[in-house]
Design a protein around this nucleic acid. Structure first.
Length: 394
DNA sequence: GACCCGTGGCC
DNA sequence: TGGCCAAGGGT
C-alpha cells in the first residue's frame, strides 16, 4: 500500500499542522486503554477465538450490551471446538436478545469451518472468506489477534480519520478514501494495539458530539480541530429520502367486544411477521378514490379526516384511515382475526400501526387502551387534522 | 448501491 | 417521546 504523505493538499497551506504520529496515539493508549473482557492485557497473547467472538458481537452493538453476553457465551462455549460442536439451538439461545440473529447463524457456521480447518486463518484476505466476516472484522482480527499490519475501519475510525484529515467528501462515498488514509497510518510496530487505540480514541475522546479535543493525543495534527469544525465531520450524504408512499388502512371494530380486525404480515421483509390492521398496498401514486376496493370486508367504511404519517428508514408513509363497525356475526376473512381490545397489547404491532389504531380510536371517540389511566396527559397529539408538511420551514 | 436485519441508550 | 445512533455484513 502506498502512503500519500500529504493526503489533503488543499488544506495544507492553511495549517502548519504536523503529520499525525502513530506513536503518539500508542502512548496515549498505553495510559488510557479501556479494560475489556475480550482484550489481552499488556504482555498477554491475544486469543483468536475471543477476539473473533467479540468482534462479531460488537458489530452494530454497544460495548455495554456485549459485555454480559460475551462472558456468558464464553462460559457456555469455552473453546472454538465446543462452539462448533454445539447444536444450533444452543448457540441461538445464548445469542437471544443481542439482535441481528444472522450474526449468530454465521458465527456457528464460521466456527465449524474454522474447526474443520484446524485454526483461524491469520491473514485479512483469508479471514474475509469466512461467513460473518466482512472488511472491518477481517482487518480487526488480523491486526488484533495476529498483529498483522491491517486497518480495521469501523464507524469510530471513520469519524477519527475524517476529522484528522478534514475529509470533505460525505460518507459512505468516502469509505475508500478513509480506508486508504487509515492504512497509511498503520505502523509496522504494534498494529494490533494501534487498531484498538483508534477505536478507543473514537469511543472516548473523538466522540460524535462534543469531542474532548483537549485530551486528544492528535489534537495538534487534526485538520478539523484547527478549523474548529470537528463536530461537522464525518460529512454524510443526504439521505435519499425515498419517495412518499400512500395507502389506506382499515380499522374494523366489532360491536359488542370491540375487537379489532388484524392480520399478520409476511414472515420476512419490511415489518416481517408483525401485526397490522389490513391495509392496501403502499404506492407513490395510490388512488384514494378507489380505496374501498381494497377493504378487507364489506361494511359502512368511514373515511377519517387527516392521515397517519410514519417515516421508515427509507421512505415516508402516509396512510388514510377508514373505520367501520361490524356486527358480531361477521367472520374475519381468511388469514385475519378479531383481537379483543384487551388483548391488543399482546399483538406485535409496530409503531406505524399503533399510530393507525390511535388515529382511529381518537376519531371515533373510543377510548384507547390505557387512555383512562392518564386522561389527557401532557402533550397528547390530536390525531384529527393532519399537520401538513411543516418540515420545510426551520 | 439499495435494502434489510434487533436492541438499548441518549437527548 | 421518538428519532438517531452504535466495533457491519449479506443479499
Amino acid at each position: 500500500m502506498e502512503s500519500d504523505p500529504e493526503p489533503n493538499r488543499l488544506l495544507r497551506p492553511m495549517s502548519a499542522a504536523p503529520a499525525p504520529a502513530p506513536a503518539a496515539l500508542l502512548a496515549w493508549y498505553d495510559r488510557h486503554r479501556r479494560d475489556l473482557p475480550w482484550r489481552a492485557r499488556p504482555g498477554e497473547t491475544p486469543d483468536a477465538y475471543r477476539v473473533w467472538l467479540s468482534e462479531i458481537m460488537l458489530q452494530q452493538t454497544t460495548v455495554a450490551a456485549v459485555r454480559p453476553y460475551f462472558e456468558r457465551f464464553l462460559a457456555r462455549f469455552p473453546t472454538l471446538d465446543s462452539l462448533a460442536a454445539a447444536p444450533s439451538e444452543a448457540v441461538m439461545s445464548a445469542w437471544a436478545g443481542l439482535g441481528y440473529y444472522s450474526r449468530a447463524r454465521n458465527l456457528h457456521a464460521c466456527a465449524q469451518a474454522v474447526a474443520a480447518a484446524g485454526a483461524f486463518p491469520d491473514t485479512e484476505a483469508e479471514l474475509r472468506k469466512l461467513p460473518g466476516i466482512g472488511p472491518y472484522t477481517a482487518g480487526a482480527i488480523a491486526a488484533i489477534a495476529f498483529n498483522r499490519q491491517a486497518a480495521a475501519v469501523d464507524g469510530n475510525v471513520e469519524r477519527v480519520l475524517t476529522r484528522l484529515y478534514a475529509v470533505g467528501e460525505p460518507l459512505p462515498g468516502a469509505k475508500g478514501r478513509v480506508r486508504a488514509l487509515t492504512e497509511a497510518l498503520v505502523p509496522a510496530d504494534r498494529p494490533g494495539d494501534f487498531a484498538q487505540a483508534l477505536m478507543d480514541l473514537g469511543a472516548t475522546i473523538c466522540t460524535p458530539k462534543r469531542p474532548a479535543c483537549a485530551l486528544c493525543p492528535w489534537m495538534r495534527p487534526c485538520r478539523a480541530r484547527a478549523e474548529g469544525l470537528q463536530e461537522t465531520f464525518p460529512r454524510k450524504a443526504p439521505k435519499s429520502a425515498g419517495a412518499l408512499r400512500r395507502g389506506a388502512a382499515f380499522v374494523a371494530v366489532r360491536t359488542g367486544d370491540e375487537a379489532i380486525l388484524l392480520r399478520t404480515r409476511p414472515p420476512s421483509g419490511l415489518l416481517g411477521a408483525m401485526a397490522e390492521p389490513p391495509t392496501s398496498e403502499w404506492l407513490p401514486d395510490y388512488d384514494l378514490a378507489r380505496a374501498l376496493l381494497d377493504a378487507p370486508l364489506e361494511a359502512r367504511w368511514q373515511r377519517l379526516p387527516g392521515q397517519v404519517r410514519h417515516v421508515f428508514t427509507h421512505f415516508p408513509l402516509e396512510l388514510t384511515v377508514f373505520a367501520a363497525r361490524v356486527s358480531k356475526s361477521v367472520a374475519a376473512p381468511d388469514g385475519m382475526r378479531f383481537t379483543p381490545r384487551a388483548a391488543l397489547g399482546e399483538e406485535p404491532l409496530p409503531g406505524a400501526m399503533k399510530k393507525v389504531l390511535a388515529h382511529a380510536f381518537a376519531a371515533t371517540g373510543l377510548p384507547e387502551p390505557g387512555a383512562a389511566v392518564r386522561p389527557r396527559a401532557g402533550r397528547r397529539r390530536e390525531a384529527a387534522p393532519t399537520r401538513a408538511s411543516r418540515k420545510g420551514a426551520p
